[in-house]
Nucleic acid binder design. Structure first.
Length: 296
DNA sequence: GGCCAGGCTAGCA
DNA sequence: TGCTAGCATGGC
């Protein structure tokens, strides 16, 4: 058994951060009392993690038998997933000085951090599925894909937790399998075709870590099913880039309209202009506005 | 019932 | 180069 105790840098609110995972996203995380269950793959190997917040740290347990190197790898992965090394103090100071309208929205959520997906493949698949759908239906479809293609790990007698499928597992599906789950034909093709490209070695997502934001956009945009918004989500929820502004996103535009009191919904260009004052924290400004939107 | 969802592609001018 | 129908369904 492995037990990690991961302390965050700066002010970190686990209740704010995890609230989104169980109430809002409704995929990947499962609540068992005060424990949060999550499966991830550590070098292909599926692990069931038990997470909880105690003594101002993220406490992580798994029954898996891991070597010292794997434990280190797991620790790095989790620090990154939960943004434990992102100190938001300068962000709060910056918004206080530069954006009095956004400041109350930010202040209400002090300590709220991004939770990244477990890996880039999972993030890409979820984002493509979520294109243009309302979030609850998107979650339904994601759960159906996980169920049809992935394996499961057992937590206790009654509780079995699914593991997000590998590209190999999704590549084996037929388009019709996903259509039967109420995916539209084209979305079924995007998901399976991209998975097959990864399996065949034509697409290597791990290379993206080293690219600039624009480099990632340039690399990913030619893929069928991947538009600008999808890459922006990959940069936010897969790579954790801090200064990304998905200016065309309908949710961000709606939130800006309400918070800043615009008569009509602002366009992409207006969002870009407004976003200038959030530099170099545009990802977190966006994230807090999204959260404001889903919370009211 | 109608319109909109944290879009994207293909087809057309 | 720029515009738009169609997608598959849930939620309001």
């Amino acid at each position: 058994m492995v037990h990690l105790k991961l302390k965050p840098k700066g002010s970190y609110s686990f209740s704010e951060t995890s609230r989104r995972l169980t109430q809002f996203e409704k995929t990947a995380y499962y609540q068992k009392g005060d424990i949060l269950l999550r499966t991830i793959r550590l070098v292909e190997r599926p692990l069931l993690l038990r997470l909880r917040w105690m003594e101002e740290a993220l406490q992580v347990e798994t029954d898996a038998d891991l070597g010292a190197e794997e434990v280190q790898m797991l620790e790095r992965r989790l620090r990154r997933m939960f943004s434990l090394d992102v100190d938001l103090t300068p962000f709060y100071e910056w918004i206080k000085q530069n954006d009095p309208v956004l400041y109350p929205v930010v202040q209400q959520r002090t300590g709220l951090h991004f939770v990244l997906d477990a890996d880039l493949y999972e993030c890409l698949m979820k984002t493509i599925i979520g294109q243009q759908l309302n979030l609850s239906f998107a979650a339904t479809l994601i759960n159906r894909l996980v169920e049809i293609a992935g394996e499961t790990l057992r937590f206790d007698e009654q509780t079995v937790i699914p593991v997000f499928p590998t590209p190999e597992q999704v590549a084996r599906l037929r388009y019709e399998d996903l259509q039967a789950l109420q995916f539209n034909r084209r979305k079924a093709e995007y998901i399976i075709d991209i998975s097959r490209r990864i399996v065949e070695g034509q697409l290597d997502l791990s290379r993206l870590e080293r690219f600039s934001d624009d480099g990632v956009i340039e690399e990913m945009l030619p893929l069928r099913g991947v538009g600008r918004w999808t890459v922006e989500c990959l940069l936010l929820f897969g790579l954790g880039r801090p200064n990304l502004l998905p200016a065309a996103d309908i949710g961000l535009r709606n939130a800006v309209q309400s918070v800043y009191g615009y008569d009509i919904r602002p366009g992409e260009e207006e969002i870009r202009q407004l976003g200038e004052r959030w530099q170099p924290w545009r990802s977190y400004a966006t994230f807090y506005l999204w959260d404001w939107l889903s919370q009211g």
